[in-house]
Amino acid sequence: MSQPTSHNTSPQETVAIAGLMRRLGAMVYDSLILMAVLMAYGSIALFVKYKIFQAPHIQGEKMELGLIGFVLMLVVIIGFYSFFWMRGGQTVGMKAWRLRLVNDQGLPVTLTQCITRCLFAWLSFALGGMGYLWCLVDRNGMAAHDHLSHTQVVVLPKPDKKKTKGQGSERG
């Protein structure tokens, strides 16, 4: 389903747009890391709200982040992805699945593209995954948020085993 697309990564290199299953695999990896980041954020945010700012709390009732805490949580999520995408185009999950996010010319993404992609990816997911499923019918294999953010997720070639074997075996 994914059609090769040439990028500016190398004059002779052709890469393919990532399919749905690879994208989902990377999302599972990233969701585990993001969950840990959000748990840390939530702990810090609740500590600041209830211990430092002394927000009222009834014993036995659940603590809430509130509107400001929720908005800051969204900033943390967008910051998480933007940090990785702008520093090499890969989150940890994307590295594991040999994926990279690039703009539609094959170059690194901008902060505006990262933010746009995060917002539209959320919408793609919220609409029952329809934006993600779009890559199954798109002629280039791109999801809806790829088009809307002018980005694409490409599959990186497998590393050359001959080069990696010889490089790490020498001892000095």
Rank of each mutant, 00 (worst) to 15 (best):
V92R: 04
T164V: 14
P159R: 08
I52S: 03
T110N: 11
M63E: 14
G88H: 13
G131W: 02
E13H: 08
F120H: 00
G19D: 12
A26I: 06
V155Q: 15
V154W: 09
S31K: 10
E13L: 14
D138C: 05
T9S: 12
F120C: 09
G93T: 08
F53I: 00
F53R: 12
R139W: 05
R100H: 02
P108L: 02
G128K: 06
L123R: 03
A45V: 06
S82R: 05
D104A: 02
L111M: 14
Q167M: 13
M73I: 00
L101R: 04
R23A: 05
R98T: 00
L123P: 01
W85D: 13
A126M: 13
G141M: 06
T9E: 14
D30G: 07
K165L: 13
T164M: 09
L101Y: 12
V109Y: 01
G128R: 09
D138K: 00
F83N: 02
A36V: 13
Q3D: 12
S6C: 03
D146V: 04
R139E: 14
D146C: 09
V154R: 01
L46A: 09
M130E: 08
V109D: 11
L20S: 00
I115L: 05
D30Q: 06
G128Y: 07
F53T: 13
T112N: 09
R100K: 14
L74W: 15
L24G: 12
R98C: 03
Y29W: 07
G89C: 10
S10A: 11
I58W: 03
R22V: 06
L111P: 01
E13T: 08
T9A: 12
L133V: 02
S124L: 10
S31M: 10
I17L: 03
I77M: 14
I52A: 12
G168W: 04
G42P: 03
Y81H: 13
M35W: 13
G106A: 15
K162N: 07
H145I: 11
E170D: 11
M130K: 07
L136S: 02
R171D: 04
N8R: 11
G172L: 13
M63I: 06
R117E: 04
D104F: 10
Y29R: 04
Y29M: 09
P4Q: 09
P108W: 04
